[in-house]
Design a protein around this nucleic acid. Sequence first.
DNA 1: CGAATAGTGTCTCTAAGACAATATCGT
DNA 2: ACGATATTGTCTTAGAGACACTATTCG
Lengths: 293, 293
Amino acid sequence: MATMGGILDAQGRTEEEFLAAYDISAYPQPSVTVDDVVMTVDDNDLRVLLVRRGGHPFLGQWALPGGFVSMEESTDDAVVREVREETGIKVGDRIGYFEQLRTFSAPYRDPRGRIISVAYMALLPSARIGGMEAGDDASDAAWFSVRLIGDDGECVMLTQVMDEEGDEEPVTLFLGDEGARAFFSEGRGDLGRLAFDHEEILKCAIARLRAKIVYSCIAFSLLDDPCCFTLTELRHVYEAVTGRRYDMGNFQRMFKNLFVKPGLAEANGAADTKGRPATTYEFVGKGYDEIVR
Amino acid sequence: MATMGGILDAQGRTEEEFLAAYDISAYPQPSVTVDDVVMTVDDNDLRVLLVRRGGHPFLGQWALPGGFVSMEESTDDAVVREVREETGIKVGDRIGYFEQLRTFSAPYRDPRGRIISVAYMALLPSARIGGMEAGDDASDAAWFSVRLIGDDGECVMLTQVMDEEGDEEPVTLFLGDEGARAFFSEGRGDLGRLAFDHEEILKCAIARLRAKIVYSCIAFSLLDDPCCFTLTELRHVYEAVTGRRYDMGNFQRMFKNLFVKPGLAEANGAADTKGRPATTYEFVGKGYDEIVR
DNA sequence: CGAATAGTGTCTCTAAGACAATATCGT
DNA sequence: ACGATATTGTCTTAGAGACACTATTCG
């Protein structure tokens, strides 16, 4: 950014003199964090990544991965770093898709003090979620299946996805108004709710994803391989996110000439399903940059 | 927010003990500002509110109104306060509409240091922009007519809207790539561009508004009186924002049964136009809260 | 062959756009 | 009556959805 070094302000200072004397801490400074709603579609349902808080505040409660932004990085960079540190999972950097949701700034949203949080939504193919491991800040990380209850989807049920061999009871959380939560999760106390205002952030992400999947190409970032997929796989992504069923025939017509071009027939590989093998398609849409909210 | 006072962390502290000992400044703290793209539709074109910088940095250049967030207010509150202080114009608080765009956080976006900015878009009826006056931080505030150049609208021309009696030359700014700006605004140097990264923020707001006007009811917040307007007035808003022309007959059918119900015929008042007087309508859509980006 | 899944054809309905026709004002 | 603007009518086209039908695999 070129500056006009020659111009003097009301105190007769050049820009260089002004900047040299400028004390940025003269204005009060909030702390800034990022929080990320990492979502994927696996086994035909929508899932979200949560971490269990290993320290105060909200010790023991489930939360979105996130943390403090350092001085030399953008919030985009911070969110990639924090998710990596807390869960071992890589978001951004040409894997899947991510975008800002909005910034949450209510003065008392964090008991530690004035902390503003920039919230993100990240989408990952389920094939890329391997190698998950809890980091230093979180005593545990887990995927939760997202299910919407009620006509308007106001109440959200989160059910922990367990390993095959595990025999523990999966954790279930209910987000919604007080009445709904009291009805579904009686007796769990604060452990039945998300830390901070993360419930609001999560609902914001779900709403954004459901709205945006119908007018943008973000669905393709939830496919394991956007360069080789069947229309049934794509349909499952849409059905998991929107919660509605699509007619198979209409879905084919809607997409086969719109976003994709046929892939090689041989790429079908071994038919791991019964019935007629599906044609594979390749996503040829342009980059995600031009998507406007 | 109830807390689980009884649970101890790895150091054996309760949440109260942890919070009492917590030093928030142990993590580095960026400064946080807000910037607002205030827009209106007047005289059939889209206008944006800019202020001329009265101090370093970017002294003398045009910028979006905005400023530092204080410790006791949300960013929503800060944006209302700053626009009021710098221009005398009231946004939010049941006047028009406003929403967050996104947060801009590139590490060197501000020469004063590490400053993160939460950007907003605000829409106002042109009848509510009276009483504009420059405040302390800005040596001047003015409305600029927004005109998009090129097929993709990549280049934006901003022309200062002058008072009736004034005889000064209106300022014109060109936003776009280097080539376009060099072509249109040669010789103006930095005074021909916006301060900070406000060009990026403004483009983001224009894109958001143009995308959102077609699937939400934000157009009604640009009407002088959403409870008494004609379909021609509404059409002018759409035409100013989208830049396209609408067939008058089709536009009527599109809206008269969708968003509005007929107002009282007597409310038409004195016909300040030639031809058949128009019916007035009233916006009966629900609140703006349920609009998802 | 039958079950299962993939893909096509066809019909209806709705909404958008082009454009003609009619209605209602001021002068 | 005439100019100007508002409002309605009609026709065409495109897309979404319901649903029947055909195609291709496995066992």
